[in-house]
Design a binder for these strands. Structure first.
Lengths: 226, 226
DNA sequence: TAGATTGTTAATCGATTAACAATC
DNA sequence: TAGATTGTTAATCGATTAACAATC
């Protein structure tokens, strides 16, 4: 089950959930084994890259056979820590916050929302899917008393650093930041920024440059799958 | 204004909107110029990296003075193509779709929602913020007739490829995919996946490994900013 | 045994960083 | 002029890919 030989690279780590989801979405009743090459083809990645990534996580791969799908799923989940329940709070119950809070799919990744926080008195005291909405004033104490491990920040940019500080004060060790700002936090706290603006930059730049190069209409393409 | 010397790297491109947002959030009435070093410090990046990135985008930097904030903002926006309005549709009006649809901040990036699409008859015919919700059956024709450039996919994983095909058939040239699947598309169409699962993998792995290494309580840290 | 597939070691590629030259 | 800051050229670093060895 993977030698701890100096840690996995950040980019490789980010590919692992893609493998996991690919394996889980494989059609029912298919073959019980799969090769790294098949996974690579399905995801548009290099064969060697997939093999190297999987070797980091599992040693269930057998020459001529491939990986047992079920075993590989278990190894990936174990490696990523998806088995353990990570207690989570969400701060900022706006549109995006509500969407994340009511999305049930995160449980698959070990993310379990315990409560949400906001400054709006109209929201405080109500609840979303049985998760209470509390005042942000209570954030540090609540996190401390309930052993919260993850904080999700869906607050406006100007409020993000203060909320992050409150989470850190409450002992949270991982922050998922949707606000478009860079946050300061002590080194033991991982701040992962979901940078939608970066994605939009790629889209916008692609359109801009493609427009300049090829103003003609693209070829007819009724279906693009394969 | 930046030599087109062979294109900008993907990673550099993704940093540009971070600079842009940093500059825009600078306090009013501050100095009219800023140095690359100051930006780097504010964002926790390397000085040389910032200088190199900015040199790609602007030639308004002057030794001993730095960059004029306003000019740099304009150059960044121009380079990224944020000036031009990109007509956009959203497919899948669930929780996340609603959140994105009603977030007004995307206009800043040139993203302008024109309409939304869903399969749910209860939604079709209604509207969100003056944007009509239409049947997905009409997706290709609508995109073609309205010159839609960007499609945002917030549909369940199983529906994503079919919707992507419909967007492509409608002449869309950029897709922002929030579904946790890899999509096939012709080469002239950029599919940018917003991979929340990758972010969660980093968070979960951090908690798992940190737990194993340092089970003791972290040091008291009332405030963590600086 | 032969062949498919895994896992590893070496080579390439790209991005970041460090050292330096240019200039206001 | 002197010093701060930009921009560039060379060196380092890390990740990907290619070639190969191992094994079921």
């Amino acid at each position: 089950m993977a030698s701890g030989s100096g840690g996995i690279s950040r980019l490789a780590l980010q590919r692992l959930p893609t493998y996991l989801s690919y394996l889980k979405n494989l059609p029912e009743g298919g073959p019980p084994h799969i090769s790294a090459a098949a996974i690579a083809a399905g995801l548009g990645l290099g064969e060697v890259q997939v093999r190297k990534d999987l070797a980091m996580v599992s040693d269930a791969g057998k020459p001529k056979v491939g990986y047992p799908v079920d075993g590989l799923v278990k190894d990936l989940e174990h490696f990523l820590g998806y088995g353990t329940c990570n207690r989570t709070v969400l701060v900022g119950v706006g549109n995006l916050g509500l969407a994340l809070l009511s999305y049930s799919g995160f449980a698959e990744y070990g993310l379990h929302f315990v409560a949400a926080f906001d400054v709006n008195p109209a929201l405080i005291g109500s609840s979303v899917d049985q998760k209470p909405i509390l005042s942000v004033d209570k954030l540090p104490v609540f996190c401390r008393e309930n052993g919260i491990q993850i904080g999700v920040l869906t607050v406006p940019a100007v409020a993000a650093q203060a909320c992050c500080n409150a989470l850190v004060a409450g002992g949270v060790r991982a922050v998922w930041n949707f606000a478009p700002v860079h946050l300061q936090a002590p080194p033991h706290v991982l701040v992962q920024r979901e940078n939608m603006a970066s994605s939009l930059a790629l889209l916008s730049y692609h359109l801009k440059t493609q427009e300049a190069q090829a103003p003609q209409e693209e070829q007819q393409s009724g279906t693009a799958d394969q």
